[in-house]
Computed example of a mutant assay.
Amino acid sequence: MMTRAYHSPTREAQTSATRRRVISAAQACFEERGYVGTTMRAIAQRAQVSVETVHQTAAKRDLLLAAFTLAVTGEDSQARLLDRPEPKAIFDDPDPVRRLRGIAAYVVRINTRVTPLWRVFEQAAAADAHVATEYADLIRRMHAEIRDALAVLAERGDLRTDRPADELADLLWLLVLPDQYFRLCEQSGWSVERYATWLAESMLHLLMGSDHHAGS
């Protein structure tokens, strides 16, 4: 006789809550101590769980990726950004200029949250082959999402056609990276508002051309 798998909603909710607590603790430790300086024991202490629970949650390199994903989306999921409610609402805006400004503002909100962890990720990738593999996959997925976003804009007739789509995708990826926020705001002393204006204008110029800055 086959037995039916037992599922306890309460237990699953507790497991999910513990995982999120561990990931949040890992994020804080990575940002404070760096990747090398963060130990599983430090994460356990921050999360107020046992070291065994941290190991059962994920390996250290996987906790770094999970922490980055949580910082970007607020969720423990690698679903595409384009499938999430906030970006979908922005893309539904009928005004192309306002839509691009909305995308830029969304990127700004993400970069102000994730820049410290992004830098940890880069540094860890340079020193750890396993993290380097995760980092390369993250870059690949970022490129793919940008190409998908530009395909949507192209279908609506909002994307300039005088430059190759692959080139636009590469340059947009460069613009939206947390690196630009770090260089301009944290190293050059720009305000977030100035950075946000620069990013929106740069995106409009890149994707729509110099004649499309007016509008909402």
Rank of each mutant, 00 (worst) to 15 (best):
Y135Q: 13
T115C: 02
I90D: 10
L175H: 05
L81W: 12
D92M: 09
T18D: 02
A125I: 10
A17D: 10
Y106D: 09
R4Y: 03
R156G: 12
R163P: 06
I146A: 11
E31H: 01
F182A: 13
R194A: 14
W118Q: 08
Y181Q: 07
R4Q: 14
Q123L: 15
G209K: 08
A47Y: 02
D93C: 15
R98L: 12
A136I: 06
E186K: 12
A17S: 12
V176W: 00
P9A: 12
R160T: 03
A26S: 13
S8T: 10
T69E: 15
H212Y: 04
Y106F: 15
L159R: 07
P164E: 12
R141K: 09
M1R: 13
A13I: 08
K60Y: 08
S202V: 01
S210C: 00
S16M: 13
K60G: 11
L153R: 05
Y181E: 06
A58S: 12
L153N: 07
I139H: 04
D158S: 02
T73D: 10
E193T: 09
T3H: 14
V192R: 13
L159Y: 03
A5T: 07
L184I: 06
P94I: 10
P9E: 11
R113Q: 01
G215S: 06
D211Q: 11
H130M: 02
F182P: 01
S188C: 02
A66W: 00
E145Q: 15
V192H: 05
T197A: 08
A47L: 02
T73S: 15
L204C: 07
E12N: 14
F91P: 01
P96T: 04
S50T: 15
R61A: 11
A104C: 09
L207K: 02
L159I: 03
R160D: 03
R41V: 12
R99D: 02
N111M: 04
L63H: 04
D162Q: 00
Y181M: 04
D93T: 15
E193K: 12
A105Q: 14
D162E: 08
M142F: 05
V120K: 03
A169E: 04
S191L: 00
Q48C: 14
W173I: 00
T73Q: 06
G209Q: 08
R61H: 15
R194S: 09
Q187G: 01
R33M: 05
Q78A: 12
T3I: 11
A79D: 13
T57N: 04
M142Y: 03
E32S: 15
P116L: 03
Q48W: 02
A136S: 12
R46I: 01
A79I: 05
D83K: 14
V120W: 00
A59T: 07
D162Y: 01
H212W: 05
R194H: 09
G157F: 01
P116R: 03
H7Q: 07
E134I: 13
F30S: 02
R99A: 09
A144L: 06
G189N: 14
V49N: 10
V36A: 15
P116T: 08
F91T: 02
R160C: 00
